[in-house]
Design a protein around this nucleic acid. Structure first.
Length: 574
DNA sequence: GCCGTTTTCGGCCCGACTGTTTTCAGTCG
C-alpha cells in the first residue's frame, strides 16, 4: 500500500504525543509536530518521489534525522521509534491529551500513578473520587475532567466558516454597542478565512471603564463560561461554538491583532525574526528593551521587522515570510476582480430561480457574464436536462441575451463524467454550448489510478472547458475522492482547460494548497458560485477567501477576464 | 530535533488564566 504524506504526518504526530507524555525535550517534540505539519501540507507525495528514486526535497525544519525517518516510513511502512514508544506508553493514552484541561504532565501522572489508559478508565476514576487524591490535582480538576469527558460525546467539531459567520456577525454587532468600546475585530482562523473554524477569536479595544468583559460574559447566547479575567475570557455559546475574547488598549491593537490572528506557526516565525533583530514582540507591541517601538497597527508591527504587511489569508507559515522578505508577496485577488461566474443552476434542473432572475442577480453583484450550467440528463436526482428541455433553455438564453443589457448569459452544461471518463453531453446540441463543465457525481470510491484516468480522459474531450469541484468533498460530510491531483493539474495546463474553485462553503474545492500548486504549474482556476438560487452568488466571497489562501492573484483566475478574452481562451483550446 | 552573514553548541515566542498552592506549575492560545 502506498504511503501518503498524511500517513507520515500521523506517525510524527503520534510520536510527538508520546514524547510529550514521556516528558521529552519540548523542542524535540516541537520538531516532530512541525515536521507533521510540513509533510502534511506538502503538495507532492513524498512516497511517490522516493519511489521514483528522486531525492527528498529540502523541507523547512526537516533535517537529516527526520529525513531518515521519512525514508524509513516510506520503504518499510513503519517507524522503529514509534514502535518503541508504543511499547513504553500505550497508544490509547494519547487520546487523553485531547480532553480539554489535560496536558502531557497531567496525563503522565494519571497513567503512572493510576494506570489510566483510556477515557473510559479516567471517567471511572473520576466518579470514584480518586483523581483528587493525586498530587497536583484537586476537586475542581476532577469535576472538570468529568464534565469534559461527558461532553466529549458531542465532540469538539470545527464549524464551517459560513456557519460560524452567522454567530460571529450577531456577536460582533452586540459588542460594538457596548459603551466605551472602540474597535472590535474577528481574528483567528475566521480572519484567515480557513474553511472551518474551531472557535471565534474576538479582539476588542475599549476605555478602561467599559463594561465590555461583563457584557460579553452576559451575552444571552452564552451557555457556559470557561474563564473570565480582566483582559481575556472564554465562553461556549448555546450552539456549542467557543468564543475567546481579548481586551487590549488602542496603542496595542495592531500587535494584538497580529498575535490573535495567527496562525500560531506564523506568529512564532514572526517573533523569532524579531528576536534576531534584538526586538521582542508580544500582544502589546514591538519592544526594544522596554521601549515600545510599534504596535498600534499591524503594518507597524511588520514594518518593525522589515516586512510589508502580510494578508491574513497567507499567514500559515507556508513561505509567506520568505516571500515578504524578497518582495514577492502576491497581489491577492479580491471579490471585485471577478467579472463573471461560470457555474450556476436554474429551475430547469435543481436550482430555485428562473434564468432571468439569476441573470439579474448576477448583474446586481457587478458581474458582466454568467454561464448557465444546469445538470446533464444522466443526473436524474438533480432533474438533469433532456435534449428537448435543453433546446428550450438555449433558445430562451438567446432571447434574454437580446433583451438584457450589461450582462451576457453563456450557454453551458454541468456534464456528468461517467465511470469510464466519457461525457454525458447533450446529443445534437454540443455545438451550441459556450462552455462545458465536467463533474464527478458518482462512483466516488474508485481506486486512485482509475479515478485519475477517468478524469484525465474526460479532460481530453475537445469541448471540455472546466473541471467542477475537483475533489468532490463535502466539508465534515464527505471525504475527497482518491485522485492524483498533481497529474490532473498538469494535464489541465497542457490541455488548456481549467480547474474550478467551487465557492459553496461546504465545498471550497479546489482547496487552498492545491490552488497554490495550480498557480505554480500555470493552470488557471475559475472561482465559481455554483449558485442554485439568486442568494447563491453571496458564496463567491467564501471562494475568494479560499483563493487568497491559495495565493491566487486576479491573473490566476480565469473569470477575472473580460468576456472577449474569456471567449478567446475557450476557442484557443477547442 | 533543527539551525547558523557574529554560532557546529546552545539556543529554541510569549503571556493570561486556573487550580493548587502559599509562589508556581500546567494548560491554552
Amino acid at each position: 500500500m502506498p504511503i501518503h504524506n498524511a500517513d507520515i504526518a500521523a506517525i510524527f504526530e503520534e510520536i510527538a504525543d508520546l514524547l510529550e507524555i514521556e516528558g521529552a525535550n519540548p523542542f524535540r517534540i516541537r520538531a516532530y509536530r512541525n515536521a507533521a505539519r510540513v509533510v502534511g501540507e506538502y503538495g507532492r507525495e513524498l512516497g511517490a518521489l522516493l519511489g521514483q528514486g528522486a531525492d527528498l526535497p529540502k523541507l523547512p525544519g526537516i533535517g537529516a534525522d527526520l529525513s531518515g525517518k521519512i525514508r524509513e516510513i516510506v520503504t518499510t511502512g513503519h517507524c522503529a521509534l514509534l514502535e518503541r514508544l508504543r511499547g513504553e506508553v500505550p497508544a490509547s493514552v494519547t487520546e487523553l491529551l485531547k480532553i480539554p484541561g489535560l496536558g502531557p504532565k497531567k496525563v503522565s501522572a494519571l497513567y503512572h500513578d493510576l494506570a489510566v489508559e483510556t477515557p473510559e478508565q479516567l471517567l471511572r476514576m473520576a466518579r470514584e473520587g480518586r483523581i483528587r487524591q493525586l498530587h497536583g490535582f484537586g476537586e475542581k480538576t476532577e469535576a472538570s475532567i468529568l464534565q469534559a469527558i461527558e461532553a466529549h460525546g458531542n465532540k469538539a467539531r470545527r464549524y464551517p466558516l459560513a456557519a460560524a459567520t452567522q454567530y460571529a456577525t450577531a456577536l460582533l454587532a452586540y459588542l460594538q454597542h457596548v459603551p466605551g468600546v472602540h474597535q472590535v475585530t474577528l481574528a483567528g482562523s475566521y480572519r484567515r478565512r480557513r474553511e472551518t473554524v474551531g472557535d471565534l477569536d474576538i479582539l476588542v479595544s475599549a476605555v478602561s471603564s467599559s463594561p465590555v468583559m461583563q457584557r460579553f460574559l452576559g451575552y444571552d447566547e452564552v451557555a457556559e463560561i470557561l474563564s473570565g479575567g480582566t483582559t481575556r475570557a472564554s465562553v461556549i455559546l448555546k450552539s456549542g461554538l467557543q468564543v475567546d475574547l481579548r481586551l487590549v488598549e488602542d496603542v496595542s491593537y495592531g500587535a494584538a491583532l497580529q498575535y490573535f490572528t495567527g496562525s500560531k506557526q506564523h506568529s512564532i516565525a514572526i517573533r523569532t525574526l524579531a528576536q534576531e533583530r534584538g526586538l521582542k514582540i508580544n500582544e502589546y507591541g514591538v519592544f526594544q528593551g522596554k521601549t515600545r517601538i510599534a504596535g498600534e497597527t499591524e503594518e507597524s508591527v511588520y514594518a518593525a521587522i522589515g516586512l510589508p504587511w502580510i494578508a491574513p489569508e497567507l499567514r500559515e507559515d507556508r513561505g509567506e515570510i520568505e516571500a515578504a522578505r524578497a518582495g514577492r508577496l502576491p497581489h491577492l485577488i479580491e471579490l471585485a476582480d471577478l467579472r463573471g461566474d461560470l457555474h450556476a443552476h436554474t429551475l430547469a434542473s435543481d436550482g430555485h430561480d428562473s434564468l432571468r432572475d439569476m441573470a439579474l442577480a448576477a448583474q446586481a453583484r457587478g458581474l458582466t457574464y454568467l454561464a448557465i450550467t444546469d445538470h446533464s440528463s444522466r443526473l436524474k436526482v438533480a432533474h438533469g436536462l433532456d435534449p428537448l428541455r435543453f433546446r428550450r433553455q438555449l433558445d430562451e438564453i438567446d432571447r434574454l441575451n437580446a433583451e438584457l443589457a450589461g450582462i451576457t448569459l453563456l450557454k453551458g452544461s454541468e456534464v456528468e463524467i461517467l465511470e469510464d471518463g466519457s461525457l454525458d453531453l447533450p446529443e445534437g446540441l454540443t455545438d451550441r454550448l459556450d462552455i462545458v463543465i465536467g463533474a464527478v457525481h458518482s462512483h466516488f470510491g474508485l481506486p486512485r489510478a482509475k479515478q485519475t484516468e477517468r478524469i484525465l480522459r474526460a479532460m481530453d474531450h475537445q469541448r471540455f472547458t472546466l473541471l467542477a469541484h475537483p475533489f468532490g468533498r463535502l466539508i465534515n460530510e464527505r471525504e475527497p475522492i482518491e485522485v492524483d491531483m498533481q497529474r490532473i493539474i498538469r494535464a489541465a495546463r497542457t490541455r488548456g482547460c481549467w480547474l474550478e474553485l467551487n465557492a459553496q462553503p461546504q465545498r471550497l474545492d479546489l482547496p487552498d494548497t492545491w490552488c497554490q500548486m495550480a498557480k505554480a504549474e500555470g493552470t488557471l482556476v475559475a472561482v465559481n458560485s455554483d449558485a442554485h438560487g439568486t442568494a447563491g452568488f453571496d458564496d463567491l466571497l467564501f471562494g475568494i477567501g479560499q483563493a487568497r489562501r491559495g495565493w491566487l492573484a486576479a491573473d490566476d483566475v480565469v473569470n477575472t477576464r473580460s468576456l472577449a478574452d474569456l471567449k478567446l481562451l475557450i476557442s484557443a483550446t477547442m
